[in-house]
């Protein structure tokens, strides 16, 4: 059941680079699980989190295959968050910064995110119950 509370979160780290990405996804997951609406503003390298063509890989050190490794991709994590939001009947509004996308040629996303800009973050923040900015180091 929706709580009618909304969290806005800004993230900036590129995938597989920092534990910040994992923490951000955990926070978003927990918020959706609790029935909160979530706005995400993916800035800078974080626009790569939702790239559709991401592929899992085997682990040559351990000698495990793709299937054995079960390597998680961020696009799959984000896709599962959209699914969770739908299940919980709450809103997940994921905005990828358009200029950051263009700079990186990173416009081929999974279903769910939309293109936007810093104004979207400001508007979302002002309409939210809480805002959290997770900066890069």
């Amino acid at each position: 059941m929706a709580s009618e509370k909304t969290l806005t979160i800004a993230i900036m780290d590129a995938p597989y680079e920092s534990a910040n990405s994992t923490s951000a996804l955990r926070i978003i997951n927990a918020a959706l699980e609790k029935g909160h609406n979530v706005n995400v503003f993916a800035y800078e390298g974080a626009v790569n989190l939702t790239m559709k063509a991401q592929q899992p890989h085997p682990n040559p050190v351990k000698g495990t295959s793709v299937e054995q490794e079960q390597h998680p991709t961020t696009k799959d994590w984000v896709a599962s968050l959209f699914k969770l939001a739908s299940t919980k009947d709450v809103k997940l509004d994921w905005v990828n910064c358009g200029l950051c996308v263009d700079e990186r040629g990173a416009g081929d996303w999974i279903e769910g995110p939309r293109r936007g800009g810093p104004k979207d973050f400001l508007d979302a923040s002002m309409a939210s119950d809480a805002t959290l900015v997770i900066p890069t180091k």
Binding site: K5, R26, I27, A30, K34, H36, A130, T131
Partner: peptide
């Protein structure tokens, strides 16, 4: 604590969060 606790703190009215 866990992320549920973090969320409860974040959503407490009037809270300023700094990461």
């Amino acid at each position: 604590a866990d992320m549920d606790r973090l969320l409860d703190l974040l959503l407490e009215p009037g809270t300023k969060a700094i990461w």
